[in-house]
Amino acid sequence: MKSRLFLLACITLLAACDKPAAATKGTIGVSLLTLQNPFFKVIGDNITAEAAKHGYDTLVVSADNDVARQSNQVKDFIVKKAAAIVLSPADSKAIVPVIQEANTAGIPVFTVDVPCNEPDVKIVTQVATDNFGGGKEAGNAMIEALKGQGGKIGVLDLKAVESCILRVKGFKEVLDAHNATAAQKLEIVSELDGGGAKDKGYKAAEDMLQAHPDMVGIFAINDPSALGARGALEKAGKVDKVVIIGFDGQPEGKQAIKDGKIYADPVQFPDKMGVEVVRAFVRHSKGEDLPPQMLIPTSLYRKADGEADASLK
């Protein structure tokens, strides 16, 4: 009896070993702006997790802010006959030719976080933060922080990236509306490229402070450049004289808000972006028509939110 049971177990095991693994439905090629930024890492991780739920593999790579590198990555996805391509463009204009190649190959292209609104390309849909709305929140936060005080404002921007352009546009719109009626005006006196990075943000903020030592506020288009600006303020001995408004809500940025180093951030939800871009692809693959963009609102995060945030120190 025991020998029969043993033989049956062996047969069952052999059958299981011979059974082929479940076939994947295909691979989604994902090229993100930079995986050095935790924000994009969260997007990539959530794309991978959500795609697996729907039976798709993923290939997630970093463009490292280099449009030539990203173009080569997209060409590789096309050669591999990817089921779909997801991009956060390193340069919304310069990426156009390779998106057109993907269009010609019949591979659906989606953008996440950073749009490509150029003519002559076909993007199924853009999944992103409402960056314009977030920029308006940042403008309101600056007005709130300065409590009626007027003065000179600096902006650390990133003009190669469409989402960052929208943030600055929203910020300026709110300041313009404020200045139309306020006794004390807020004047943007400097706009410099902060590179979306701490080191470049530090240098740009340092240059701003040297040119405008009486500056009262800085808006930075993301947390790394905001943290760079904070470093420049510390070096200049102006931490109590200049308000910083960031953008993103990365853990390091939230911690800085809790610690009083940054006043506030319009917080993005990169986890939702990753999930929603995969769901958009699945809907598209079933023949559903999608809107040209699917926007996720930001939420303003202040010191009180940081103090109530159990994930922080």
Rank of each mutant, 00 (worst) to 15 (best):
F132K: 10
A229F: 01
D309H: 00
A304H: 13
Q100F: 02
G133Q: 13
R69N: 12
L13M: 11
Q126L: 15
G253A: 06
P89R: 09
V277A: 05
D130Y: 11
D76Y: 02
G44W: 07
D289K: 03
V124N: 00
A220L: 05
I123R: 02
A138M: 14
K19E: 15
C17R: 15
A51T: 05
N117T: 08
P297K: 08
S163M: 08
R69W: 12
K303Y: 10
D305F: 00
I153G: 01
A205V: 06
S92E: 00
G133F: 13
L227T: 11
D91P: 08
Y202D: 10
L227S: 04
I218G: 01
E118V: 12
E137C: 02
K303P: 05
T58C: 13
T34C: 08
F219E: 04
G154V: 14
K198A: 01
V42A: 08
S62G: 00
F40N: 00
V79A: 02
L233H: 05
Q149G: 04
A102R: 02
V216A: 04
K53C: 08
A9P: 05
I99N: 03
A82S: 13
L146E: 02
M1R: 06
D207E: 09
D271P: 14
T12H: 12
G194W: 11
K75I: 13
K241N: 14
A83L: 04
G44H: 09
M208R: 11
G139K: 03
I296E: 06
G26P: 11
A23K: 14
R167H: 02
D76N: 09
K147M: 01
E162A: 10
P213E: 15
V127A: 08
E276G: 15
C164I: 02
A280R: 04
L300E: 11
K235F: 03
E173M: 13
Y202K: 12
L227R: 06
R4T: 12
E252F: 10
S31L: 03
S71Q: 09
L192K: 10
F269I: 03
I143Q: 08
A256S: 07
N37T: 05
A177H: 12
A22L: 01
T24K: 14
G154W: 09
K254N: 06
Q268L: 11
D259S: 08
V79S: 07
K286E: 06
G194S: 13
G154Y: 14
T129P: 05
K203M: 12
I221W: 02
A21F: 03
G231N: 13
K147R: 08
T58R: 01
Q36S: 07
P213K: 13
L227N: 07
K41R: 13
G228I: 04
A264D: 10
D248A: 14
H212R: 07
V174K: 01
V242W: 09
A197W: 10
F219I: 08
I188F: 05
A205L: 07
G106M: 08
Y263Q: 12
G194F: 14
D309S: 00
